[in-house]
């Protein structure tokens, strides 16, 4: 049993999530268990969306990563709120604007990588600086609240489960199908394993990379809009924790950082784990320092236990 679990390190994230949940409930003396679970699911959604986008990029192969995700989310939150302009009629347009903004960011990232041959880490890092500046200048003094319909939508629950979580779970299934059963998905996995061999096998490596960065951008954009809706307002820093979180949930969830292998259920497990961990620490009354310390140690421990890339 231990071997089976160990062979799938991402299952530990679900185990860990459960453990953190139990510890939290125990401290609260059994009260509010449903509330904790619901809140965790709701918050996990935002991590999952960012994580899925990051996962696609990371799967492209070693060195591929999107460090502009946080800035993207921040800008998208401002853009979506501005376009929606507080009215329900503007929801569709606002979402489209956020997605479009993310798409443009993804395309710009890829252009930097492809045209200027800048390594993705640096390219997305540089673009994150630029996006941040745009966001600061654009969003200065922005006070627009989300339209009431949109805000309600992000908090809507069905039988205790957040609607957003259900939709995101469906989306995760769709992403898994995309990865394994479409030509695009196979091409991503091939490129990640060996880009050179992929090219020789007829894969349009450049196109695959471009599409993937844009997909990640769009997911970041949508995430920003949803976050603005859930937290009732946009701000520059709304995406900051999601940069490191997106990478963490991808890897703790079992996707290989070397590329070519992706794990979607693991992203849910890892997101729930991270959210519940923070909830647990909050319940214990830990300060910011202790929270960070503990989160970091857990991440390292989980990965160290699971072991790393299998040697070829």
């Amino acid at each position: 049993m231990l071997e089976a679990l160990r062979a799938r390190p991402w299952t530990w994230s679900f185990v860990g999530a459960l453990g953190a949940f139990v510890a939290t409930i125990a401290t609260l003396h059994g009260q509010g268990a449903a509330g904790v679970a619901t809140a965790a699911l709701a918050l996990a959604v935002f991590m999952v969306l960012a994580g899925i986008g990051q996962m696609f990029v990371i799967t492209l192969g070693p060195g591929n990563i999107d460090l502009s995700l946080a800035a993207n989310i921040g800008l998208a939150s401002a853009v979506s709120m501005t376009v929606m302009n507080g009215s329900d009629a503007g929801i569709g347009l606002g979402l489209a604007a956020a997605a479009g903004c993310g798409l443009a960011i993804g395309a710009a990232n890829y252009l930097l990588i492809w045209l200027l041959r800048i390594p993705p880490i640096i390219a997305t890092l540089s673009s994150s600086f630029i996006i941040q500046s745009i966001d600061i200048a654009y969003g200065r003094g922005l006070q627009i609240k989300p339209p009431p319909g949109f805000a309600d939508f992000t908090s809507l629950q069905i039988a205790g489960l957040p609607l957003l979580a259900l939709l995101t779970m469906l989306f995760t299934v769709a992403a898994a199908v995309l990865l394994r059963r479409t030509i695009y998905g196979r091409w991503v996995l091939a490129t990640g394993q060996n880009a050179h061999a992929a090219r020789l096998a007829g894969v349009a490596v450049g196109r695959v990379r471009a599409i993937t960065y844009m997909v990640c951008g769009v997911l970041g954009g949508l995430d920003g809009a949803l976050l603005a809706g859930y937290f009732r307002g946009a701000n520059v820093d709304i995406g900051n924790e999601y940069l490191l979180a997106s990478i963490a949930v991808v890897v703790v969830g079992g996707t290989s950082v070397a590329g070519g292998e992706a794990n979607l259920p693991g992203i849910w497990g890892a997101s729930l784990f991270m959210v519940l961990l923070l909830t647990m620490l909050n319940t214990f009354g830990a300060g910011a320092g202790a929270r960070l310390l503990f989160t970091g140690l857990i991440i390292v421990a989980v990965i160290a236990f699971g072991g790393g890339r299998k040697t070829a």
Partner: peptide, 27 residues
């Protein structure tokens, strides 16, 4: 130049032929 190490033998063989293996858009 050739092998995709994480894939199965079948996946390695079919990578060039995916267009013909589709049914309803999915492989």
């Amino acid at each position: 130049d050739g092998v995709f190490p994480r894939w199965s033998i079948a996946e390695n063989i079919t990578i060039r032929s995916l267009k013909n293996l589709r049914r309803g858009g999915l492989v």
